[in-house]
């Protein structure tokens, strides 16, 4: 991080977002079972808590169709007043409280058989919702602290593929995090690279990693994701040489390599439309690309807000000059 104001005395607030999507975890090709992975993650949590007595932790489950705090649970106070749990002389009490809460929370989620899920939710988890919850929690914790000694960060442990419908909310979270100086670390435990989360880590200067061997998850977590903001100034941590900057279009939520960008609000579209659906700017011209022209003509015909009816007072001064920017390609350095 560029933030040099970190000192040894800072306490760390780590918000862990765990993707508990059962469709992925129980997939026959999954290299590690949720149970085993949880053991690794719990040990990692304990390692974080072991670092300092004032290290804070929040765990959020990003489940299918729902996103929920596992620790601290809703009835707990924000800073984690301990609930009554049985004491065990072999375990440090702080660890036990967290571990029990996380385990029982996940068990509750998995046993909940009320599939209020809609078809489109299937197979994707609520990463964006979890990130928002995490950011809100951090904001609250920072306000309560007031001294600037708490250094927050977010760690996303994900297995699900990107859900392109989440693009806009995720981007909004990313920019909020960037503004608040909160790094988002991402560990894609297996599968394809997660395009949006990769961008999240890149923009917020967090760490993105896709471990080569998911069975050794704990070592990856300990080595790359445990260092706090102070230690990161002095350590070489895995970086990203190549980031997939592809975006999802605003109209059909498809991930696109090349698209149309509104010159006023920078919204992205996979096909030409004469009126920007986000800012209502009207484009009184036809794009140059033949395919786009066809598409444009079709939309213009079906759309009453066609360029012909546009009023003289449109925010776009000289629409014809915008052709080049309207068809501006969003290039990708690589896939």
């Amino acid at each position: 991080m560029k933030d040099h104001s970190t000192t040894e005395d800072d306490s760390n607030l780590l918000v862990i977002v765990i993707d508990t999507n059962p469709f992925e975890w129980e997939h026959s090709s999954a290299p590690i079972k949720l149970n085993d992975a949880l053991q690794h993650i719990l040990t990692f949590m304990n390692a974080h808590l072991a670092g300092r007595h004032d290290n804070k932790l929040a765990v959020i489950a990003s489940h299918v169709g729902v996103s929920q705090f596992l620790y601290p649970t809703l009835n707990d106070h924000i800073l984690g007043s301990t609930q009554q749990t049985e004491k065990d002389a072999n375990v440090y009490q702080n660890f036990k409280v967290v571990n029990d809460a996380v385990l029982s929370g996940i068990r509750g989620l998995l046993e909940d058989h009320r599939p209020t899920l809609e078809e489109k939710d299937l197979g994707s988890s609520k990463i964006a919702a979890s990130l928002s919850l995490g950011l809100c929690y951090i904001n609250q914790a920072l306000k309560l602290d007031g001294m600037g000694h708490v250094k927050p960060r977010i760690l996303v442990l994900t297995v699900s593929p990107d859900s392109s419908s989440d693009y806009i909310p995720i981007m909004n979270c990313i920019f909020s995090a960037q503004k608040a100086n909160i790094p988002i670390d991402v560990c894609k435990i297996w599968g394809e690279d997660a395009v949006f989360l990769q961008q999240a880590a890149h923009i917020t200067e967090g760490i993105y990693m896709r471990p080569s061997d998911p069975a050794g998850l704990l070592q990856v977590l300990m080595f790359s994701f445990l260092p706090d903001m102070f230690s990161r100034n002095y350590l070489y941590l895995p970086g990203q040489d190549q980031v997939d900057f592809r975006a999802a279009c605003f109209c059909h939520k498809k991930i696109v390599d090349i698209g149309y960008v509104c010159s006023v609000c920078l919204s992205i579209f996979c096909s030409f439309s004469p009126v920007c659906s986000t800012c209502r700017t009207k484009f009184a011209f036809q794009p140059l690309l033949s395919q786009a022209r066809r598409l444009g003509a079709r939309t213009a015909a079906s759309n009453p807000g066609s360029p012909k009816t546009s009023t003289p007072g449109t925010p776009v001064g000289t629409p014809t000059n915008l052709t080049s920017s309207a068809t501006m390609a969003i290039s990708t350095p690589s896939q």
Binding site: A50, A89, N90, K96, N99
Partner: peptide, 11 residues
Amino acid sequence: ALTGGGNSQSF
């Protein structure tokens, strides 16, 4: 200590 294993009852 991290995993809560052993039987030392040190906590």
